[in-house]
Amino acid sequence: MIAYDLQCCNGHRFEGWFEDSRSFDRQKKQGLIACPICEETAVSKMPSTFAIKGASGTVPPKSGAKGDLAVLSQQIADYVEKNFDNVGADFAREALKMHYGVSEPRNIRGFSTSTEEATLKAEGISFFKFPVSSESSDPDAS
């Protein structure tokens, strides 16, 4: 058995248990996985603290403390900032260009409208949304 942290397109997080990763993929494709809150079937796997190694090569402890979550959130934000190209408002356009082979695939970050997100989903483009602090979202911030 394997447990995944899942999130629906409306932002509700929940856990799902599957026989293996292929079982998750099959059930998702068939629309059998639904959010227990809103029953939305557009769900995606979320990063889990069990899958993120710390600097010492150990998995962060699962204490549930708000401080631990804040630290983990900051580590993720720092990693994305350092390892993803910031394309700002051109996120959807750049994702579509990579999807159709117009530009080379690369890690990108930015923002998009709900209409652009719907287009990306309709085109079969996977993306991950996560909140950022107001300091991180200001492109003019140093």
Rank of each mutant, 00 (worst) to 15 (best):
N86Y: 14
A70M: 13
D85Q: 12
A70R: 07
F50Y: 09
G57H: 02
R109Y: 13
R109N: 14
G54F: 10
G110K: 02
A51P: 04
Q74I: 10
G110A: 05
G67Y: 12
S63T: 15
A95E: 14
S56N: 14
S63V: 06
F91C: 00
S103R: 06
Q74Y: 08
N86D: 15
A55Y: 04
S48V: 00
K53P: 02
L69R: 05
A77G: 08
N107E: 11
G67L: 14
H99G: 00
G64D: 01
T115Y: 13
L96V: 13
V71C: 00
G101R: 06
E94L: 02
A92R: 02
K82F: 05
S73A: 10
E94H: 07
K97V: 03
P60R: 03
M98N: 00
H99E: 11
G57E: 07
E94I: 12
N107I: 05
K62Y: 11
N107M: 04
A89N: 10
A89K: 08
S103W: 04
R106V: 11
K82C: 03
S103E: 14
K82A: 11
D85I: 10
A55N: 03
F91A: 00
D78H: 02
G67Q: 12
H99M: 05
Q74C: 08
E94M: 02
A92D: 12
D90N: 09
P61Q: 08
P105A: 06
K53E: 04
T115V: 12
H99N: 07
Y100T: 03
G57R: 04
S114F: 13
A77Q: 10
T49P: 10
M46G: 06
V87H: 08
T58M: 08
A65K: 15
K62W: 09
T113A: 01
N86E: 14
R93T: 11
V87G: 03
D78P: 00
D78M: 11
V71W: 15
V102H: 07
V87R: 06
A70F: 13
Y100K: 07
A77C: 06
R109L: 13
A95K: 07
E94S: 05
K62E: 13
M46P: 05
S103C: 10
F50T: 07
S103F: 02
E116A: 08
K82I: 04
H99V: 06
F50M: 01
